[in-house]
Design a protein around this nucleic acid. Structure first.
Lengths: 220, 220
DNA sequence: TAAATAATTTAGACAAGTCTAAATTATTTT
DNA sequence: AAAATAATTTAGACTTGTCTAAATTATTTA
């Protein structure tokens, strides 16, 4: 059906698609997958043959509904495995991403279904990201990138966009984990950094680098 | 380190090695993996380069201690996943083999270790086959092929060598599951079939085809 | 033990996925 | 709007694992 490699390309394209309506550029995919632009062009042609993406030479790709369904089913598996690894096998939140990256390609819908039931039909993974349902619906529940926020106020950390161990360890050190509640104290126009304060009065600075990888919801 | 394909070859060679001291022939590996003899020759050369097998042209291979360790670690993972799929996710015993065949190649010793702990350090998989320990030791506990038995008496079914759904479904229909206790009533020299009887007086015939895939231990 | 048969290996090719270097097309700058 | 720069694609090659057909080596049979 689809190979692991194709699945990884579709996941990358899907992730690069969310948020902006534009086509996803070859170079963006290459960057995201740490591969060469030439390889991306080759794979894009293949995915286009299979109607997983719409490809216009020199102008990148748009994912089709068919491709999106595949991507979402892989993301669903990925996030369910992450819950399993943390809740059941007691891994730490910065250890689960790479393992889930392998487990997600085990190709059995029945396995996914039973895993989901065993875990009690979780709606979010350990990083706060929503788990797409069987039909490929994502309940994003008003998540926004912290970097896009213009209004001071109270927010809850609901997810992250960078799952690398180093980023997650950095967040944990700063006291930022999914569910953390904080208020924005100040936003600096110059470098887009911001200062936030937790309910325990502890206050920290957050750079644009960091805030563009944090998903938040308004709180109260 | 080792690719999935290499791992599958090593597993096959290991399984074909147990029981007989001889070299494993190219054609036997090809048969076991449903591939061509030419492909086997190619892979054998590669495994020989890596000191996983000792290869003598035209005379098959012997697995080395190094190759055996890899095979046993894969078999360990395979059987632990089978326990997980049956005990935790409630799959039936004829459904777990193919899934475990995929899961076994997820390459993390830490994952295997935690899965083992979560399952309560099981010593046997759902088919009755022993789970090799971390050091690659197998506690075979006196298992013998039913087809090799020459003495009438009472036996307990402790494992199977064929994990195909069709074979397992056949066994279940006949009342043969791991732990089943039976006595050999008669052994026919002509076609190597045998008649066995369960404690509930039910009696069945077993052909050589079947008995050579059943592992038993003497009971009392 | 020589001929026939069976098993194994070699040769050459193919598919998937990758790469670098060169050619082509887009975009930006002046 | 032409020149310079940046992005993308093409061309050609490499790796892993596979195949078929032909050549070679072992084994069996007469």
């Amino acid at each position: 059906m689809t190979t692991s490699t194709e699945e990884n390309y579709l996941k990358a394209i899907y992730h690069l698609s969310t948020g902006n309506q534009n086509s996803v550029l070859t170079s963006a995919i290459a960057g995201s997958l740490s591969t060469s632009a030439a390889s991306v062009t080759d794979m894009i042609k293949k995915l286009s043959e299979k109607n997983m993406v719409e490809y216009e030479r020199y102008h990148g790709v748009k994912i089709t509904r068919k491709g999106e369904k595949v991507a979402l089913s892989i993301i669903r598996r990925h996030r369910l495995w992450e819950v399993f690894l943390m809740d059941t096998l007691k891994f730490k939140w910065d250890e689960v991403h790479d393992l889930a990256e392998e487990l997600e390609h085990v190709s059995s819908d029945e396995l996914t279904k039973r895993l989901d039931a065993f875990l009690g039909f979780p709606k979010f993974d350990p990083h706060g990201d929503p788990i797409p349902d069987t039909n490929g619906k994502v309940h994003s529940n008003g998540q926004v990138l912290l970097s896009e926020i213009t209004k001071k106020g109270k927010y809850i950390l609901s997810g992250v966009n960078d799952h690398s161990p180093s980023f997650l360890q950095y967040l944990e050190k700063k006291g930022l984990i999914p569910g953390s509640i904080f208020s924005i104290v100040e936003m600096d126009e110059f470098d887009n950094s911001m200062q936030i304060i937790f309910s325990n009065k502890k206050s920290i600075f957050i750079s644009k680098e960091v805030s563009k990888n944090l998903l938040v919801r308004s709180h109260e």
